[in-house]
Design a protein around this nucleic acid. Sequence first.
RNA 1: CGGGGUAUAGCGCAGCCUGGUAGCGCAACUGCUUUGGGAGCAGUGGGUCGGGAGUUCGAAUCUCUCUACCCCGACCA
Length: 568
Amino acid sequence: MRVSQFLLSTLKEVPADAEIISHQLMLRAGMIRKLAAGLYTWLPLGLRVLRKIENIVRDEMNKAGALEVLMPAVQPAELWQESGRWEQYGPELLRISDRHNREFCFGPTHEEIITNLIRHEIRSYKQLPVNFYQIQTKFRDEIRPRFGIMRAREFLMKDAYSFHLTQDSLQSTYDLMYTTYNNIFNRLGLKFRAVMADSGSIGGSRSQEFHVLADSGEDAIAYSDTGDYAANVEMVPVLSSTEQRQPATAKMTVVNTPDQHTIEELSQFLQIEPAKCVKTLLVQGETGLVALVLRGDHTLNVIKAAKLPQVSSPIVFAEPEQIKASIDCNIGSIGPVGLKIPVLVDNSAANLADFICGANKDGQHLTGVNWERDLPKPEMVDIRNVKVGDPSPDGNGTLEIARGIEVGHIFQLGTKYSHAMKASVLNENGKNITMTMGCYGIGVSRLVAASIEQNNDERGIIWPQAIAPFTVSLLPINMHKSQRLRQVAEDIYAKLQAVDIDVLFDDRKERPGVMFTDAELIGIPHRLVIGERGLDTGEMEYKGRLDEKSQTIPLDTVIDFIQDKLKN
RNA sequence: CGGGGUAUAGCGCAGCCUGGUAGCGCAACUGCUUUGGGAGCAGUGGGUCGGGAGUUCGAAUCUCUCUACCCCGACCA
């Protein structure tokens, strides 16, 4: 590709509304442009990367025996009503109606559609198992689209769905997909980790997420420092301590704590550790408010808490007016002593003695509080997030926590959809058996951003070779002044193309600095520079995007040299 | 949806408080010079100051209102 015939729309300045590095660089490199919140146009440069990733995903899925299909983005409401998700899904589902006032949605996922297809196409156990996938545009009306294409409303996803007669069969396809995902992310050159996950609104039992490790990731993942355990923090259980609670030594005392609302303020004010305080959060329960009590240095895990039968799912925090009406104080002064509503206490908080808590009166806290003396024996639950240093739930090592970007998710769905939608086959005895399902997603467009998050420096993007928009940049210095140089550059350009190398030939009448800066910003892995002065000695210059220094190579070996580089 | 903020040329911003001819840098275009790390000089084009209403002789500026976008929280590939 000649730059003069390409759209190279690079920006010097960082767009003001781009927060994270991948978003900034994608805008600066001219890969994407925003149309509206969460909606982006892919420019030619960005699309080249997207397509390369897509093709790697497609290639590995095909190798795993999955069959590609393409389903409509617009889906009739009837199928969603049949599965029950028309009511369940909420405002994230973009609902539309056609000219006949018939209801549709823009598909956020395709379980209903594939299940509908399969129940009509597959009749016999002899046809199973099957695994169908597509690479297609999804729409989810996110409450808050963010970080460019990282969390867009419209995005490109690979979604696959498998159908089975037995759980064993599902397990083996699930395992195959696990391996396939590892192959895909390895080929993309990503540092990633597979973790156990909550299955969320898709439903089903077993599920694992694949996270690209990056500080800007929106998820926290916990992993054992010595063992194999790794899971999304959302669902990591906290092993209950074996330590006995210390005996009470202090007397319960009311202290004045004017304007101390947060644990941080309180612990500084009273000069005590946050771990000696408890915090009390009020949430909606099945019948009125429920109090959740945690140690001051711990945070609530809303996923785990929402699974408690006493608590509404998802978690809804009490409104300040509701709290005022129920216990006559403000949020910063609530405590478990004397509460008339159900109290659920995290194991760690229940193990405290002589602790500090709100007095249920503004401007006052209680010190020296003890369970089973000043207030009843607590109902103990596991509702806190794990912390670095907590023991690993599998008993092997202690936990570390890292940030991750979720780029893939595999589920064992079971019969949730096939049952609701009556997708069954005849078994060998001629009996109807409901098929068992799995589903497997990859955020293809998100992978573009995730890769940049892991591969960049102060000059721009550093693409892994497998997904770079161009493999080689060819930069002639002052070509407009030398006919001889033009001939040699054109010759090299033609030869690189002849051996199928994606080369970007900068034939603009630009100064060298501009060419270097652009090639580095857009992250081309290999750079060839040719100038008049090299022609006399029959040499040109090569530099890898990550190399400190350039090296000189003979002109007549350049094709071999590059081909050799690409092999490594 | 709650909390916070922004809206002025393609991008980044000033001007607003204290009403009076709409500006700067980058980008774009033309010419000359320059040419191994985002060049210099001279010139040119480009604006319903987010929309609507109001106050005023006069509104980018003050008031009201609507909209869009961004950031912090719950959802998720």
